[in-house]
């Protein structure tokens, strides 16, 4: 086995190659991504930490099984996100329940800051308001918002994760932002009507 220092210098693709020869190296790939992927699972499903860890474990085992099908033209992180995404969705399908998004307060602030690029939008939305808006959005829009603004993935990476053309991803992000604003406006108007 290589020393921890030299492992840190290895790229993801090199670690994949090493893992194919010696499974011990796979644990270094797990360590590199486990924190990011756990928070991603929680963001798209709203499960507790322990459940997210179970999903992650299954996803990494599945990743190891498919290691030979990993194409080096793809970023390993995109491939890992894709498998985790699919594993999470499949877990919910098995349980026949709808995933619920869970966002920490910090996440919500970041999300609104990213979406509200113009001054007309009230950036000081309450946490509960943002949650209501997100709950009223389609799953496809929430997915791209999470990947773009919270996971900070670019369009090409989102395309590889969700297996959608880059152009479609761009359209989805723009529509998601518009939906977010539209729903917010509608909620505001409804609130004003109630006051009157």
């Amino acid at each position: 086995m290589l020393s921890d220092e030299s492992i840190n210098e290895k790229t993801d693709n090199e670690l994949v190659s090493l893992s194919l020869d010696n499974q011990e190296y796979f644990s270094y790939l797990v360590q590199r991504y486990e924190r990011r992927l756990i928070s991603y699972i929680i963001r798209i499903s709203g499960v507790k930490l322990e459940d997210a860890e179970d999903v992650l474990q299954d996803a990494f085992v599945s990743m190891f099984l498919k290691l030979n099908s990993f194409d080096t033209r793809l970023k390993f992180s995109s491939w890992a996100y894709r498998i985790v995404h699919n594993q999470t969705i499949s877990e919910f399908r098995k349980k026949k329940v709808r995933p619920v998004q869970y966002f920490e307060e910090n996440d919500l602030v970041r999300l609104v800051d990213s979406i509200a690029t113009d001054d007309s939008f009230d950036k000081k939305l309450l946490k509960d308001e943002i949650k209501v808006i997100l709950s009223q959005m389609d799953k496809k829009y929430r997915e791209v918002l999470v990947l773009k603004f919270l996971e900070e993935k670019d369009y090409n990476e989102i395309s590889d994760i969700l297996k959608k053309p880059v152009g479609t991803v761009g359209t989805l992000v723009n529509r998601a932002k518009k939906k977010f604003r539209d729903i917010h406006e509608k909620i505001e108007k409804d609130a004003e009507k109630k006051k009157q």
Partner: peptide
């Protein structure tokens, strides 16, 4: 090694999981 990576490696070893062959 973290707890999760340890668990994953254990599962791979216990269940004798090997990557699907390149040929397949």
């Amino acid at each position: 090694m973290t707890e999760i990576s340890d668990k994953i490696l254990q599962t791979i070893k216990e269940k004798h999981i090997i990557p699907t062959s390149r040929f397949k």
